[in-house]
């Protein structure tokens, strides 16, 4: 297995976006790309990352391999790469290590690191194809700010989607808060658009703690998609055009 990115920045951001939610995980490498699927320890949230082979500078995977890695260790290794350095990952069949090589674009500095692989029992979940009742596309910075703001007032947020607006509400000991975002088009700046596709109205409640973990992916993508159906986990997708995506799933809070 050998994969090379032109710039380390994307991989650094991907790891930063998921490492606080899931500790150790397996990267599944096939000839179509690298992916991981992992739940947090409480089985409330799930992360699914796909890095498509087309998004790499070069990519080769002769035999499918599952590499168990501590994401904190991977973050440490990637700290040693400059944002514009190229990154090459190499793993030989049956080897218990993965190699990282970083090269500056003027080629005057090359650094190499070897990370021990771990034995990880991965439990993959089958995520059913879902026709969601409401899909909201919005700037990822708006979601990050909304979740951070409301976290000051409560632990949970109720997201309600109607035809032309989406409402985020919370309440706690010191008071209540809500943020309403209205659909707005923007032909010249599609990344600032708020688009609401509503088949049925939805109202779901989620723990803000997890949403704040998810919005760590905001630096990867200008836009985010919230896919919701009543009594169903929320899917939060950060698309990375040409590269792949990060999808987070979050189980709702339900009436006792």
């Amino acid at each position: 297995f050998e994969a090379k990115w032109d710039h380390a920045s994307t991989l650094k951001k991907v790891i930063d976006a998921v490492k606080d939610l899931i500790g150790d995980t397996s990267w599944d490498c096939t000839n179509t790309g690298m992916s991981l699927q992992s739940m947090d320890s409480s089985h409330v949230a799930l992360v699914h990352v796909l890095l498509k082979s087309e998004g790499f500078e070069s990519y080769r995977c002769d035999r499918n391999v599952s590499m168990g890695i501590s994401l904190n260790s991977m973050a440490k290794v990637l700290k040693c790469a400059g944002n514009d350095d190229s990154v090459t990952l190499r793993h030989e069949s049956e080897s218990s290590v993965v190699n990282f090589a970083f090269e500056s674009h003027k080629e005057e500095r090359v650094s190499e690191f070897e990370l021990k692989l771990m034995n990880i029992d991965t439990e993959h979940l089958g995520i059913p194809e879902t026709e969601y009742d409401s899909i909201i596309k919005m700037p990822s910075a708006d979601l990050r700010r909304t979740c951070a703001d409301l976290s000051q007032f409560g632990d949970s947020v109720t997201i309600s989607c109607a035809k032309s607006d989406v409402r985020f509400e919370t309440s706690g000991d010191i008071g209540t808060g809500n943020v309403r975002l209205s659909a707005r088009g923007s032909s010249d700046k599609p990344e600032t658009e708020i688009a609401i596709e509503m088949i049925n109205p939805v109202s779901l409640t989620f723990a803000l703690k997890y949403l704040n973990f998810f919005t760590k992916a905001a630096p990867l993508s200008d836009t985010v998609k919230l896919c919701m159906s009543n009594n169903h986990p929320l899917c939060v997708e950060f698309p990375m055009p040409e590269v792949g995506y990060i999808r987070y799933y979050l189980a709702p809070k339900i009436d006792e």
Partner: peptide
Amino acid sequence: KTVQSSLMNFFKKA
């Protein structure tokens, strides 16, 4: 009063 559900209530092991 709401309680946190688990993903395992919705998704099956693959």
